[in-house]
Computed example of a mutant assay.
Amino acid sequence: MTATSPSASAPIPVFDGHNDTLLKRVVARGTDRATDFFQRAETGHLDLPRAREGGFAGGLFAMFVPSNIHQDFSKPYNPNDPQNYVEIGQAEALGFTMKMAAEAYRLERQSNCQIRVCRTVREIRDCIERGILAISLHIEGAEAIDTDFDALEVLHGVGLRSLGPVWSRNNVFAHGVPMQFPASPDIGPGLTDAGKALVAACNDLRILIDLSHLNEKGFWDVAGLSDAPLVASHSNVHALCQNARNLTDKQLDAIAESKGLVGLNFHVAFLREDGAYKRDTPVEVMVRHVAYLVERLGEDGVALGSDFDGCMTPSAVSDSAKLPALIEAFRAAGFGDALIVKIAYKNWLSVLERTQN
């Protein structure tokens, strides 16, 4: 197997702001749910054949540590189970994070030059041009990071380029926003002193700070401290779906002022006006959120953050192979080709470049 360059008839490349594929692969290892990433599967959202089919060119691959790493992951995720939000220790979190980082490098090694773990935007651009799947490492919830930031330095050295201080649970750095509906993101206090130091450390290392899952007070703390563009990798519009995970107009305006970015989350409960878990959510609901974001943030401030392998997607975009259906929905809504290409991948590359340089 060798890398191939995109053809003229290939789908528009998509660089995606968030997926949980590394977690999915690590927890399935050694079980009957394990799949070969290089073979087309009928479960999950992302493997190499479906990525190629749908134009999924790469993205931020999350390293998320569940509260109970020994839980039965074959059962449906229950967002109302308090056990999913129990705080986790740093040593355990770091060990599990290393498993996911190792999985990324294992995939790269086994891919015969079809996958690359990228440390720079130049490398990502090269991968897109050559048809190589680009992995950029991201931490979702900084439990693996110690307050002396030794782990942050080492993980940065192996390719960490994006970090969310919290998932939807509290840790030593900040307070996560619960996935409640209907609810405001203004839940709980902001960053701790350690969290404020983490922002400074990420700025020094040029690691993107992801605001998704952070509560509103934490959001404003980051906005007041960070010298980088404000980015929410996989969040939607609170005015259209009043889930606490979504962003208010005031937050969107702050992101726009910083020349930052929001990636559309494909999770149906963050898209639908009624907040329901229903796969038959029309793709037009996704377009509605994107149109709102474009109006609020401008054409350079909107991208995609699917949450593949970590959410319930609309049936029309049931996995990475179906991404062209979303692109066609953008066209049907009157989005021009230049805007579609920005949303698909150019805006992500731009904000990563401006953060890292």
Rank of each mutant, 00 (worst) to 15 (best):
M1Q: 04
A3E: 10
S5G: 08
A10E: 01
P11A: 06
V14Y: 01
G17H: 08
H18W: 04
N19G: 02
D20E: 03
D20Y: 01
D20A: 02
T21V: 11
V27I: 14
V27L: 04
G30V: 09
D32F: 06
R33P: 02
D36V: 09
F37L: 07
L46P: 03
L46D: 01
L48Q: 02
L48R: 10
G54K: 01
F56E: 05
F56M: 14
A57L: 12
G59M: 08
F64Y: 15
V65N: 03
N68C: 07
F73M: 07
F73W: 09
N78T: 03
N80V: 07
Y85G: 02
G89S: 14
E92H: 13
A93H: 03
G95V: 02
A104F: 12
R109G: 13
Q110L: 15
S111W: 07
C113D: 15
C118A: 14
C118N: 10
R119S: 14
R119V: 01
R119T: 02
I124C: 12
I124R: 09
R125Q: 14
D126N: 09
C127H: 04
I132G: 05
A134L: 03
L137R: 09
H138S: 14
I139V: 15
G141L: 08
G141I: 04
A144E: 05
D146F: 12
T147K: 12
F149G: 11
A151S: 15
L152F: 11
E153I: 13
V158C: 13
G159H: 11
G164V: 00
V166K: 07
N171Y: 02
V172C: 07
V177D: 06
P178G: 07
M179H: 10
Q180G: 02
S184P: 07
S184M: 01
S184H: 06
T192K: 05
K196L: 03
L198G: 02
A200E: 15
C202K: 03
N203C: 14
D210F: 08
L211E: 05
E216Q: 14
F219L: 08
D221K: 00
V222D: 08
G224T: 01
L225V: 09
L225G: 05
L225Y: 00
A228G: 02
L230Q: 06
A232Q: 06
H234L: 02
N236L: 00
A239L: 03
C241P: 10
K250T: 14
L252N: 07
A254H: 07
S258K: 08
K259N: 15
G263F: 06
N265E: 04
N265K: 06
V268F: 06
F270M: 00
E273W: 07
D274L: 10
D274Q: 05
D280T: 01
T281L: 00
P282N: 09
H289E: 03
Y292F: 14
Y292V: 07
L293P: 09
L293S: 06
L297R: 01
G301M: 09
V302D: 04
G305V: 07
G310N: 02
C311Y: 12
M312W: 00
P314E: 09
A316M: 03
A316D: 15
V317E: 06
D319P: 07
S320H: 10
A321L: 08
P324A: 01
A329S: 13
G334N: 12
F335I: 05
F335E: 12
D337N: 12
A338L: 13
I340E: 08
K342F: 01
A344Q: 00
A344E: 11
N347S: 12
W348Y: 08
L352N: 03
E353K: 14
R354D: 04
Q356D: 03
N357E: 13
